[in-house]
Design a protein around this nucleic acid. Structure first.
Lengths: 261, 261
DNA sequence: GAACTATATTCCGCAATGCGGAACAAAGTG
DNA sequence: CACTTTGTTCCGCATTGCGGAATATAGTTC
């Protein structure tokens, strides 16, 4: 697959290749996959067998991979989890937001998520679902596109000119020839946010899911930009309800979470 | 703290040092810490400044670190979160256990956690708290010692002879001269588990926290060993209640989660 | 604003370190 | 038992990463 992507090229004397390769191995594990063979890793990463072997050996020794006793396949080790939880722990906004989000979810019987922009994605930092049973908070850490989701559009619309430009470039690369269309849509969403304060995505990202999004005023610009969404199934929420009931409440929630502003 | 643990030493031609160092940088972030300077990283990892600089450069470029705009400090990047969530996603037991645990927590107004052994620690894979408000699931990914917690003791007691020996060695190294005492305590706990099926830790790990633990029968031996605990504040749970009410219910919960066995 | 810290980045020659093709092992398959 | 498929080890080569020292940048103090 990917022909060695040393795009920057060559003389980046600061870039530590071996580290990058090791992380490439770790990130070859897609969520939901349990165990991968050494060979599959070689394929996915595009690295030669012997190199992968050395890397898995190293990662295993450090606890970032663990080897299944009989199959010999590798799974992500618990050391990785520790890192992940350190990330979550470092965002203290979660501590503030989570209980408020929980209340919101219960009160409106709707799911609500807190996200942060990373390039042209939104990464979920916290999720509260209305139906207590379903889904094990698995969505924390997962990514949704900036362009087609309510939460992404809200975030995009809150960017300053400079940052927006960067995000645009990111997406231009990502969407290729579709970019003009995507951009038009984004611009439209941005106008809506400027006027009404929230963004919508009614069935555009996932069929039959209605969502609205709002941005949190970012404490420091240039910092990660935070945003919220509220989403529910189309059979339970129509566009009117989302616009007139949910969206104002979500704006209110945002104000609760970040009192200043 | 840990004086460079290059125990094996020297001629391990397979071990990729640069990768290990990079990961050492990532794991220098303790949960709850937001941003670290390059220098602090150098201190904590014991690596020379220029090396750290190169590593942070690389990690930043890959999204595993992100640099605060003005301070220049580094924080863990969102790419790390993706890895972490991939780990959680790979343990399908969570999907089964979580709703049952939630019900349990509500019914008994007590906290319950699912853990897995990693060396002489237990790593939490899932936590359900009784009081909906408090604490944002932050404990997923955190570590507690095998020796002094109910959940750890339950897990220890369920190990086969071979694995127990390994764990013993781990702890002997960890506790040094205290190990005989710790071992005696563990052996005592093991006897209790053999007789009654559960372990206790009443105020031993955290003051004023009462906990009982049980092991889940591991699907494949040699695989990670899973275990449960239930814990609550001492003012609300006395030893009798824990033993006669909570412990049996927890055993029942274990049976629900892993029907076979 | 000059002199001084403290911290981060960059340079650069050296050689240790990681590389990867190929040989070797091991385990599964017809 | 030949044959395939997957994983590990070897080993010489040169690339890659190393780290001390020099340089840049910022923040303090007088």
């Amino acid at each position: 697959m990917s022909f060695t992507p040393q795009e920057d090229e060559s003389k980046d004397r600061l870039f530590v290749e071996a580290l990058a390769r090791g992380l490439r191995v770790l990130s070859a594990f897609r969520p939901g996959e349990s165990a991968l063979s050494n060979q599959v890793l070689a394929q996915r990463t595009g690295l030669p067998k012997s190199t992968v072997s050395r890397l898995t050996y190293t990662l295993t020794k450090l606890g970032y991979l663990s080897q299944d006793a009989d199959s010999g396949y590798y799974r992500l080790g618990l050391a990785v989890l520790a890192l992940g939880s350190a990330v979550l722990g470092s965002y203290d906004i979660r501590r503030v937001a989570a209980p408020l989000m929980r209340d919101f979810a219960l009160k409106h019987t709707i799911s609500v998520s807190l996200g942060m922009r990373d390039g042209s994605d939104i990464v979920y930092l916290e999720t509260c679902r209305s139906q207590a049973r379903v889904s094990v908070q698995l969505s924390v850490g997962s990514r949704v596109p900036l362009a087609s989701t309510a939460i992404g559009r809200a975030c995009y619309s809150s960017l300053g000119a400079a940052e927006r430009e960067l995000a645009d470039m990111d997406m231009a690369a990502r969407y290729g020839k579709d970019w003009p269309l995507v951009q038009a849509k984004l611009e439209q969403a941005r106008q809506q946010v400027l006027q009404r304060g929230y963004s919508e995505s009614f069935g555009e990202f996932e069929r039959d899911v209605m969502a609205v999004g709002v941005a949190l005023p970012s404490p420091a610009p240039g910092q990660g930009s935070l945003c919220l969404n509220a989403s529910g199934p189309a059979f339970a929420f129509d566009a009117d309800t989302m616009r007139n009931q949910v969206a104002p409440a979500l704006l209110q929630l945002a104000r609760q979470i970040v009192p200043g502003a």
